[in-house]
Each structure stands twice: as structure tokens, then as C-alpha cells.
């Protein structure tokens, strides 16, 4: 299955920047661990509210020095700051918000994704355990109005992550609507994966060479705008 082609892609911060452009002002957003967390570096001054499943709305920037409070962390276990209008609540309330359809967008990382919008991310079989750290990922998939994935297009070794069928345990089926990678922006539609944007210097053919499912090329295919 592996074609071992590998292109030098955008850095993780730039993937995060591209995702941030897709988040409309006025949105309530939950960011998963990894590249999604970096999106908060690009949303300062933008009118969106970040939800942390530990039980906080309107998380601020990472805390440093004297601002570090052991009672104030985000879901990635980082000390954060509060903003004017921040609120705290218990875990039941937090997941009522998540499962109950009150969060507009969840952005998650993934190990594998397919053209139906199924994705795998909670358990890497290479760890050799049936159990894993599922955290709140499946609740977010069940309840967020939109689910975006932000990830590297292939593994470090050039293995495909965008595949025809998942071989890793699924997190959710048919929930992902947009995929942002270091090489491309792909929309997931009922007809399949639509390639909307490619990194400068690459062609649709290049992207197809590192993508399992057959891509539909958007009529207005363009370079990733940063």
C-alpha cells in the first residue's frame, strides 16, 4: 500500500494557520491535542471562544512564569490563562455542551482517514494494547456540529494516512467534513474527497501520489492561502 513518496510540506504552525482561516467569528471551538492546539496561536483578537473539556470556556494563551496556576490547565495538560468572560464548570456540564450539539467546530488530529469521513486517532496498534487513551475525542465526534482534521499528509516514514479503508481502530464514522494537511486542503463530500488547495509548487498529481482514495479535483483548485 505504501508508495513511500514524500514531499516537504508546510510546518505544523502553518497547517494550524490555514485551519484558523476556516473558523468563522462567533464560533465555539474545541481543539484536540497536537496540531489543533497550535491553532490558538492564530486566533488572538479573533472573536471565537475556545472550549476545554476539563471545564472551561474562553481559554486564553499559555501561562508562563508567575501566571502559572496549577488549578488552571487546558485539555492538553498545559497551564493556561483566563480571559475576560471566561467561565469554569464541572465535567458533566462540559460534556453536555460537547455531546449536546453546542460546540460549532472540533478540530482533531488523526492517524488515518478515508474518503467517507471515517477517521482513526484514539489508539495506535503499534502500542500493542487493545485499550488506549480515548479521552473526549469520541464525545466531540458525536456532538460537534462540524469536525475538522488537521494532520501531516503521510507518516514520517511516508506511509499513507489518507487511505481507502482504515486499518486502525475507528474514532468515528462519516463525521469529518474538512481535512487540512501539510500538503493540501481536502473537503469530504458525499461524492468523495475533493481536493481544494495544494501547497505551492505541488500539483494535484503529486497529492494523488500520496493519497489512497481517488481525489476529485475542484474546478477552482488553488494554492493553499496563508
Amino acid at each position: 500500500m505504501s508508495q513511500k513518496v514524500k514531499f516537504e510540506g508546510l510546518p505544523r504552525e502553518m497547517i494550524a494557520l490555514r485551519v484558523s482561516r476556516e473558523i468563522k467569528e462567533g464560533s465555539y471551538v474545541n481543539l484536540g491535542i497536537g496540531i489543533p492546539t497550535l491553532i490558538s496561536n492564530w486566533t488572538e483578537g479573533v472573536d471565537i471562544v475556545l472550549q476545554a473539556e476539563i471545564g472551561m470556556l474562553k481559554t486564553g494563551s499559555l501561562a508562563e512564569g508567575d501566571d502559572v496556576d496549577q488549578d488552571l490547565i487546558n485539555a492538553s495538560c498545559q497551564a493556561v490563562t483566563a480571559l475576560p468572560g471566561s467561565s469554569y464548570f464541572d465535567i458533566v456540564e462540559s460534556f453536555a455542551m460537547i455531546r449536546g450539539g453546542h460546540i460549532d467546530i472540533a478540530v482533531m488530529g488523526a492517524l488515518q482517514i478515508n474518503a467517507r469521513g471515517d477517521y482513526a486517532g484514539w489508539s495506535n496498534p503499534s502500542r500493542g494494547l487493545f485499550v488506549g487513551n480515548v479521552g473526549g475525542s469520541m464525545d466531540l465526534c458525536a456532538g460537534a456540529k462540524k469536525l475538522f482534521i488537521a494532520m501531516e499528509h503521510t507518516t514520517k516514514d511516508g506511509e499513507l494516512k489518507i487511505v481507502n479503508e482504515l486499518s486502525y481502530p475507528a474514532t468515528a464514522l462519516g463525521k469529518v467534513s474538512m481535512l487540512f494537511t501539510d500538503l493540501a486542503v481536502i473537503e469530504i463530500t458525499p461524492k468523495g474527497m475533493v481536493l481544494k488547495e495544494v501547497m505551492a509548487g505541488l500539483t494535484a498529481k503529486d497529492i494523488q501520489s500520496v493519497t489512497g482514495p481517488k481525489l476529485i479535483i475542484a474546478k477552482d483548485l488553488k494554492e493553499i492561502e496563508l
Binding site: E53, I91, V92, F95, S137
Partner: peptide
């Protein structure tokens, strides 16, 4: 080690 999604854990309690 028995695992449940976090929101399910919250709701179980």
C-alpha cells in the same frame, strides 16, 4: 484497565 470515552465516564457518575 477498562476504558470509556470521557463524556461517558462523566455521565456514568
Amino acid at each position: 484497565l477498562e476504558v470509556f470515552p470521557m463524556g461517558t465516564m462523566a455521565e456514568k457518575y
